[in-house]
Write a protein that binds this DNA or RNA. Structure first.
Length: 412
DNA sequence: TCTGGGGTCCTAGGACCC
DNA sequence: TCTGGGGTCCTAGGACCC
């Protein structure tokens, strides 16, 4: 098999950098994206100035405030990030057609066989780096290697705003001195398990027998053995670049600013979550067979309860009927709830069958929801709401029912 | 420290079928 | 009446990623 060349392009402090485009006065200052310092929630991104104080993503906002009270706390703007992410993709795609966005702020580019066009890898990477800066006004770091795994680890080592190449054949030497935690897929738990075995560096891992790792960690251990030697093994690293598979699940969840045990508040929140999920299902032209409720109590204990339905659906009201049933069967009445979530999966594409099945009620809702989706496009997410049509004194970001949705009260 | 929201993948047990 | 052997689907939970 011939040697391939992969770039891993990772945007530097992406959310913070995008916020700086909208408010240049933020530049160079300690900035925390994610919310107010007294809110429930965690840091989505921290500027390099804020990181000097120990602030990093996933840190609770209240903790971030204690570490760095002078930081500027800003709310996240997902639409801005999606738009900039699209610009990043456009730059990459114009550069080389084999691009796969791995998340909103990072991508793999298969650069194999582009030497005649762009020259050797380092030269090509610097050209791409420059084009990215010119087109998006954002900095990125680029890792270059013969496997995607090593390219990803390399871009991390290149940060911030750098380009780094691991020459084929030098993977093991490059990886050996790094902490095992640097290997994608090794998180807190696996790191602890490895430490318990006296394994701290990737080099320690690479010296072990495959059989030993397989015995200790199963299938995952075998993939880990390959990773320690820089081989794309296991999980999505094995897939081809550029193939666009649709989503496998669509979900929304909400953490209350204060825990609550009020049924009206809980159920109207579930209704709102079902609307958000239903809308996205319709956008993607998908019908879900499996609908799941997520419930987190004050003590952070969390359960999920799922049900698969005979007829896949994309309708808010049908999602809500299932979810409410799951909720009523599983919620310990009176127990304060911290978080609610609605998840859908086992998708089926739209079929003629589904349209033919549509009995009157089904069709009414379908048309009403299409109208509601249009209204939301024009006036925003809170313009129309099933939650608003529910009884109960509690209302959250909703008002009366301007679309005239059928049915005042969703009853079975 | 007091812990978001959106995902993916893996494991494991039980039901059910042949 | 002492206990098959898959295969597949479903559910629940957990690790991990950005």
């Amino acid at each position: 098999m011939s040697v391939r060349t992969y770039f891993h392009v990772d945007m530097d402090a992406f959310f913070v950098s995008v916020e700086e485009l909208f408010d240049p006065s933020l530049k160079g200052k300690p900035v925390v994206v994610g919310g107010r310092p007294n809110e429930r929630g965690v840091v989505s991104a921290a500027s390099y100035a804020a990181r000097k104080f120990g602030v990093h993503s996933a840190l609770p906002l209240r903790t971030a405030y204690k570490l760095c009270p002078q930081a500027i706390f800003v709310d996240g703007h997902p639409e801005r990030y999606r738009e900039c992410s699209q610009q990043v993709f456009d730059v990459l795609h114009a550069f080389s057609p084999l691009v796969e966005m791995a998340s909103i702020d990072e991508a793999y580019v298969d650069m194999t066989g582009t030497e005649r066009l762009y020259g050797p890898p380092l030269k090509a990477a610097h050209l791409l780096h420059e084009r990215m800066k010119t087109a998006t006004r954002l900095n990125c770091s680029i890792g270059i290697a013969a496997s995607r795994l090593v390219a990803k680890i390399t871009s991390d080592q290149a940060k911030p705003n750098g380009v780094l190449w691991v020459i084929p054949g030098h993977e093991a030497a490059f990886l050996a001195p790094l902490d095992v935690r640097k290997v994608p897929g090794v998180g807190k738990v696996t790191e602890q398990n490895l430490h318990a075995l006296g394994i701290r560096k990737v080099g320690d891992l690479a010296r072990l027998e495959d059989a030993f790792l397989e015995e200790r960690f199963g299938k995952w251990g075998l993939a880990l053995a390959g990773k320690s030697r820089g081989i794309d093994a296991g999980g999505w690293f094995d897939t081809e670049i550029g193939e666009d598979t649709g989503p496998k699940s669509i979900s929304h969840e909400h953490t209350f600013s204060e825990d609550t045990a009020e049924v009206a508040q809980l159920e109207s929140t579930l209704a709102r979550l079902c609307e958000m999920v239903g809308r996205r299902l319709r956008e993607h032209g998908l019908h879900a067979r499996t609908i799941a409720l997520k419930l987190r109590y004050s003590d952070f204990s969390t359960i999920t309860r799922a049900h698969s339905v005979g007829r896949p659906t994309q309708l808010d009201i049908e999602l809500y009927e299932e979810i409410r049933l799951l909720f009523r069967r599983n919620w310990k009445p009176g127990a304060a709830v911290r978080l609610l979530g609605v998840n859908t999966s086992s998708f089926e594409e739209e079929t003629e069958q589904m349209d033919l099945i549509g009995e009157a009620r089904h069709e009414r809702w379908k048309h009403a929801l299409a109208a509601a989706d249009k209204l939301r496009d024009r006036f925003g997410e809170s313009a129309v709401s099933l939650a608003a049509s529910m009884r109960g004194k509690f209302r959250e970001r909703t008002h009366e029912n301007p679309a005239g949705l059928p049915g005042k009260k969703p009853e079975r």
